[in-house]
């Protein structure tokens, strides 16, 4: 590659802002984040941007590049035609703090609302046993790097502003990872149905498309959760069985939720 490129970067804060164009020298193999950091070092020292790993592992460098939510550290410049300027702006679904940095604290609040992992008893020899094939699905969900690109693209949060009613695809993934964890015994279905709003998702699959970890958010996490809700609350036979059995149907090994045990000192 070599030569120069132009980036149009949104500069501003909560009170407003505009796009500013910067021309910067580039080398072969550079990604959008490299160009931004070069501009920051040489032309705009106070340009605000988040990053850490520069290898798609931490989920810090989320932004919208040419209108699409992406990780800037995994987006090569040569993805775009060489003459055209590349437009870069902050995530839209969250309030901007400054330049490319947004306030994503809402996501951390949602995570806190989710009842934590609650393990069942260990085997008599003190071990937990799980077969690899039983944890494959959960491991897919646990690949999530919390980049919140899926949250940004989901129209329920982005356009309809229903942050009050839906925790968003990221936390559906988190909920699925707990609900499908072979050792977990807590019951989160009532919350998934009501407070976390799984019913609001209308399966557009936009979240799955942008996930840099290629998690099948809609098909593997959200739809199975929807099915579990349907089975529990709307399937007449399940409901009858549940009523006969006491509080609920499904696997009977789940216990009431409480906080995890405090760790023992070493």
């Amino acid at each position: 590659m070599g030569g120069e490129r132009t980036l149009r970067i949104w500069r501003g804060d909560a009170s407003g802002g505009q796009f500013v164009s910067y021309r910067t020298p580039v080398e072969e193999g550079m990604v959008v984040l490299d160009a931004i950091l070069r501009i920051q070092a040489e032309q705009a020292n106070d340009l605000a941007v988040r990053w850490n790993c520069k290898a798609g592992k931490c989920g810090s460098c989320s932004m919208e590049i040419e209108g699409r939510p992406r990780l800037a550290c995994m987006t090569r410049l040569n993805l775009y035609p060489p003459e055209a300027a590349i437009t870069v702006q902050p995530l839209k679904a969250f309030p901007v703090i400054k330049d490319l940095v947004t306030d994503v604290s809402w996501n951390y609040e949602q995570n806190r609302r989710i009842p934590p992992f609650q393990p069942g008893a260990r085997d008599p020899d003190g071990q937990y046993r799980m077969a690899q094939c039983d944890v494959d699905r959960v491991q897919e969900f646990r690949k999530c790097i919390e980049c919140f690109l899926c949250q940004d693209v989901c129209h329920i949060l982005r356009d309809r502003e229903r942050k009050d009613a839906f925790v968003g695809p990221r936390f559906m993934v988190r909920l699925a990872s707990l609900e499908m964890h072979p050792l977990d015994v807590a019951d989160r279905l009532p919350l998934i149905k009501e407070a976390f709003g799984v019913g609001l998702c209308n399966i557009t699959r936009c979240c799955t498309e942008v996930c840099p970890e290629h998690i099948q958010i809609t098909d593997n996490a959200i739809i199975p959760l929807k099915e579990r809700v349907v089975d529990r609350y709307y399937d007449p036979i399940q409901r009858l069985l549940g009523w006969l059995r006491g509080r609920r149907g499904g696997t009977a090994r789940k216990l009431p939720m409480s906080q995890g045990p405090a760790s023992a000192p070493a």
Binding site: R50, N52, C53, A55, K57, C58, G59, S60, V104, Y108, I145, E146
Partner: peptide
């Protein structure tokens, strides 16, 4: 950084 982004994540 934000929570969960420390070096350990890498």
């Amino acid at each position: 950084s934000l929570l969960g982004k420390a070096h350990t994540v890498m």
